Computed example of a mutant assay.
Amino acid sequence: MPSLSSRKQSACCRWQERLVLPYLAAALMLLVWQGAAMSGLVRPVLLPAPADVLAALYGMLCSGELFRHLAASLGRVVSGFAIAAALGISLGIAMGMSARCELVLQGVMQFFRPIPPIAWLPLAVLWFGIGEGSKVFIIVLGSFFPIYTNVLQGVWQVSGKYLEVAEMFQVSRGRLLRQVILPSVLPYILAGCRSGLGYAWMCILAAELTSGLLGIGYLLVDARALAQTDRVMAGMAVIGITGKVMDSLLAMLLDAGKGVRVWKKKIAA
């Protein structure tokens, strides 16, 4: 049996691994990047040094330019993602629980699913103009299908023994949804929402690259037109950091309160 000191040492090693390993790849990437920039093999206009990117980022932060563009993109992402999540979760559960609903809607979903969201952009601009509506519409299309697909698969994966017990005791559909379906599907909702959030950022950038005068996508286009590669890469870094923070917050929110572990305990009980 391991001693108390060995257990403490093992726990300390695990804590150090969780603290260090996630940032090890990023540190190595920065070192290689800095080395390539300093070697002179690549022109600065093509690959600026990390210090130049940080300087550009600092300049945009001080001027307030970055906050204006980020706030615009963030508002669009949150709005579109919220609509997509509501639609994807609702339709995924409805089609998973109702064979008739699945029969009616499955063909339509399979028809629209392969169409890239960006292919809708000309119609979105025609229908909603170049304002917020077209951009939110593209985000909804991009985020919806990952969420819907994961939720539908989650409902299909619900253990048959729970459904049999619910049928035996003549449990109402509402109670079945609250006490059996939702607890089982919650991990799939989490996975779908996290995937959908990534698609939301990809879609908003593509929409902003083609229309509008405000947003991270417009910032990247404007910097590219002026050959300001350091600003382009600074904007890309901001997108990655913001996406990571939103993904972590989403995971924390869905795991808090009646989170995944609590739901699983209720199922087991």
Rank of each mutant, 00 (worst) to 15 (best):
P2E: 12
S3K: 02
S5E: 15
S5Y: 13
S6I: 13
K8Q: 15
S10H: 13
C13Q: 15
R14S: 12
Q16E: 11
Q16T: 11
L19T: 03
P22D: 00
L31G: 10
G35H: 04
G35S: 07
A36F: 14
L41Y: 14
L41E: 14
L41F: 14
R43S: 15
P44L: 04
L46F: 15
L47V: 05
P48V: 06
A49W: 10
D52N: 13
Y58K: 11
M60S: 14
L61P: 05
L61N: 08
L61K: 08
F67I: 13
R68N: 11
L70M: 14
A72N: 10
L74S: 10
L74T: 03
V77H: 04
V78Q: 04
S79K: 02
S79F: 07
S79I: 06
G80M: 01
G80I: 02
F81G: 01
A85L: 10
A86N: 03
G88C: 00
G88D: 00
S90Y: 08
L91M: 09
A94K: 01
G96H: 00
M97K: 07
S98N: 06
S98A: 03
V104H: 03
L105T: 05
Q106L: 13
M109G: 01
Q110D: 15
F111W: 08
R113A: 05
R113V: 08
P117G: 02
A119V: 13
V125Y: 01
F128H: 04
G129W: 03
S134D: 02
F137S: 05
I138A: 06
I138T: 00
I139E: 08
V140L: 04
S143R: 03
S143Y: 00
V151I: 01
Q153Y: 08
V158T: 03
S159N: 11
G160F: 10
K161I: 09
K161A: 07
Y162D: 02
E164M: 02
V165K: 02
V165I: 10
A166V: 01
E167R: 13
E167N: 14
F169G: 03
V171F: 14
V171Q: 12
G174C: 02
L176S: 11
Q179C: 14
I181W: 00
L182R: 09
P183C: 04
P183H: 04
Y188G: 00
Y188Q: 06
A191Q: 04
A191G: 03
G196S: 00
G196W: 03
L197N: 04
G198L: 04
G198A: 09
Y199F: 08
W201F: 13
M202Y: 09
L205E: 07
A206E: 00
A207E: 01
E208A: 01
T210C: 07
G212N: 06
L213I: 12
L213C: 08
L213K: 14
L214Q: 15
G217K: 06
A223K: 04
L226Q: 15
A227D: 09
Q228Y: 11
T229W: 13
T229V: 08
R231Y: 14
R231E: 12
R231M: 12
R231F: 12
V232G: 10
M233T: 05
A237G: 15
V238G: 09
I241A: 15
I241V: 15
T242Q: 06
T242F: 10
K244D: 05
K244E: 10
M246D: 06
A251C: 08
G259M: 11
K264M: 11
K264C: 07
I267C: 05
I267A: 06
A269N: 11
